[in-house]
Design a protein around this nucleic acid. Structure first.
Lengths: 205, 205, 205, 205
DNA sequence: AATGAATGAGTGTTCATTCAT
DNA sequence: AATGAATGAACACTCATTCAT
């Protein structure tokens, strides 16, 4: 895949314009969905002519990449922060619970954007998303490694847990199933804590 | 949403042509992805002129619907079958393990199609997929209900488990992470069995 | 304009089929309007396959020509008959009035078909219509010629009168203006009789 | 009916292009007839690519609307002007005669366009035409009302006269019958003046 | 004679991108 | 830097007509 980079904006005005474009892209993305975005819409929303867009971005994809990158970055920051914050939780259960709640908060705060990122975005497009997942994997794996017990493989556990919790929280936000938030939190917490605790030496059934 | 039905083919030749079109649609879908599918491409791949497509399908959407329907149907059948087959497994652990393995088999057999269905298909389009998920939810919930213990809510547990296992297996197939299949199976089995078993009266941590 | 003739049907079955096609063409014409007619619709309405149409008519135009021809023929017959019938009317006024009423009857009886013929049909298509008008011109001219007086030109008068009365009656049927039928009849009768009568030698103003 | 407006051209170049498109539309309309008009043809005739058409008009219909609007506007203006000019004619006969001549001039000047407007344009499409007819009805009715005599209904008379004279003049232009223009003018003048004059109290025959 | 599957040029329209100004 | 007019390939879809069976 040929990846064309955005030119580095060199002036204040340029940076401002880039911001306007990215903001416009975000707006249009939310209003019209991934497939509904057109360069003309974005340009118009940014108060620019269609041609000017191409002074700042090589093509449409680059604009959307940037929008997604920033959005994912925002999510990342909040999620990472929450995770770190919970490291000093009094118990594993507490830590897990607070992370689950943080995820529900983050995804639930902007369901529209979550939907766009999860449902509509071609998976290949934002490799950023996958990159983030991998980073979280490592983070969690590290924490697990520091834990005493277990002849188990922390990376695998991390991978499983991250996918499990992420998908369950996202799914709950997007599917809006007839399940109370508190119940979901309880169950996910239970799921994770049971998985983490106990019988490290017990044979896997 | 107006649902236009495919015309019933009345002759052997017609039925053959429908098959050719569906097969071509499948091929093009795999080669060019969801957004890359074009009526002209499908027609060409089927060895037909563009107009002929419309003798058998009212529009592009109907062709893709049919392709997806069949594919999802295939997956559904296999997954349901596997689930039912495992009902008489000697232990819960066995049952879970065999289901996980079945899912990995099913999704892993045609990763390309899995990717299209999971990543690229507009979520709203094939409500078929959501419908299937809900059916599985119920199935699992039923099984959980028949289990003795627990003051817990089977529907919530079912919902959580179905998403967890589905997403983990799909994710493993699509992301191809550096995790051995056997390890994943072990961990998922552990995750689920621990979640299901024990301390029904223990307070949620 | 290349005019392809319909093949002469040689067998009873053929004639029947031709009738079915023409009837179907008429139906479709009324249901869907001139531009809405497709050969497939006509064939289906006639209980035939699209290909069979071309056993009886060289192309779509020929089918519509035939339909129009017959319809115009029907109108012609009724109008001519009415005209002849009124020849023995007790007075010119009476004759005119009865003709006007006949025209209103004829056009008003099937406004839908009248609308198709007058509004939708490309004028060039059914030269039949023009031919009919010319024939009526002659008829009226003949009658006018037999009248004694006047150094005036009967063909011109006939032409003017025929267009005037035809268009006024058709217009009334199609436009549905807020004018009582009786009033229209009165006025048209007055228009024509005044035109025909009197001051044949008075100079044209 | 949703009425999409043409975008307001903001620059000199744009205005020029709009003119080119309208002119091209007119040309294509005359060359190929109403049904033969194609956006591609119009664009080509305007020296533009297909896409450029849609910078200025929302769809094909809007282009034709504009062409027809202008053309009808031109006709309207001339006809109305002529009518008003004749109001101070020395006699009714004179007035009528001059109006008839004006109509023949107007329609005869561009028989091809007249043919398109009258014969080919879907009646419903340019309600403009019907609107004009109605306006002339009222105009004539007003004039008739100001006339002293008669217990007759001016609106009905106006309706009849407008259709009569319009159709006769249009018919003469389009049919090109073997009738001298001067003769037609004489006869139509006679027809109308006789109709208007005299015996207001005489019973309708 | 009849079928109906197949055709394919053509339709109106979209939109990412370019480029003269 | 900025404009916005212009592009043109591509799209989904139609339908009069043909032709192998």
């Amino acid at each position: 895949m040929t990846r064309r980079e955005r030119r580095a904006p060199q002036q204040a005005r340029s940076r401002e314009t880039v911001e306007r474009i990215v903001a416009a892209g975000r707006t249009v993305l939310l209003q019209r969905g991934w497939d509904g975005v057109t360069t003309n819409h974005v340009a118009a929303a940014a108060g620019l002519s269609p041609g000017s867009l191409y002074q700042y971005f090589p093509d449409k994809e680059a604009v959307l990449d940037e929008v997604v990158d920033r959005e994912v970055g925002r999510l990342e920051a909040r999620i990472s922060r929450a995770f770190v914050d919970t490291l000093r939780a009094p118990s594993v259960g507490d830590q897990v619970r607070r992370n689950v709640e943080a995820l529900l908060d983050v995804f639930g705060e902007q369901p529209a954007m979550t939907r766009v990122l999860v449902d509509q975005m071609p998976r290949g497009a934002g490799s950023r998303r996958a990159a983030f997942a991998r980073r979280v994997d490592e983070l969690v794996a590290t924490v697990l490694t520091t834990r005493p017990a277990s002849g188990r493989r922390p990376e695998v556990m991390a991978w499983v847990l991250v996918r499990t919790v992420e998908q369950a929280t996202i799914g709950w936000v997007l599917e809006d199933p007839p399940i109370a938030r508190a119940d979901l939190v309880d169950e996910l917490t239970l799921l994770v804590t049971r998985y983490l605790e106990g019988s490290p030496d017990g044979p896997v059934p």
